[in-house]
Amino acid sequence: MTDSIISLSGVHKDYVSGPELVHALIDVNLEIAQGESVAIIGQSGSGKSTLMNILGCLDRPTAGVYKLGGIDVTESSADERALVRNRLIGFVFQGFNLLPRTSALENVELPLVYRGVSRRRRRELAAAALEKVGLADRAGHNPSQLSGGQQQRVAIARALVTESPVLLADEPTGNLDSRTSLEVLALLQTLVADQGISLVLVTHEDQIARCASRILTVSDGRVQRDEPNPEILDAAELRAEMG
């Protein structure tokens, strides 16, 4: 696969926890193509969060090579990684991770601040991104004035605004009820379909994983199964059925 946006080969991650050496990831090989949606499923402690951190350039592998968009980021410096995170990756976290006491619009602007985009242009792009997630009318609200689902949509807008090719969603529905979860998933599915974004979705729920086109099962630091999802769930439809 030459058009892989994400390419891991022989990735190991060890860390020391007290007296023990923990093998969090063992020989992970993974290719994700542009426009693919991949769910990573596993129990807590399986290594899926470590994998997510490495994919997000928040952590470095102990061994192996990680190429993101064709760039080897394994040995890159902290500043280079910051640049890669800014340009190539959008993050959606379980806990939303919006800045408190900061309006939705300004939260969405944030990645552009570090990209050196002018204030006016930032405003425009952030407003457009909020529009895409259906929150144009909430631009001036602070996170504390928004529901969980709305906060997660602001976070998605923040990931979108940079037009990064990769969206990493770490338990994006973990703090949401099932209706809101489906709404957020539907939004993510739309983005993959319409914008050709590669989505990596970490979850421990089967139903959510089945919204992706490919499902990776991680346990004990290894990718145990990696198979296409024969029957992709349409989150929007499921949501509609719930009424």
Partner: peptide, 16 residues
């Protein structure tokens, strides 16, 4: 700390 983490995750360099 969390704010700093968020900023770093979305692309703030140490110098920022």
């Amino acid at each position: 700390k969390r704010e700093i983490g968020i900023r770093m995750a979305i692309g703030a360099r140490a110098s920022d």
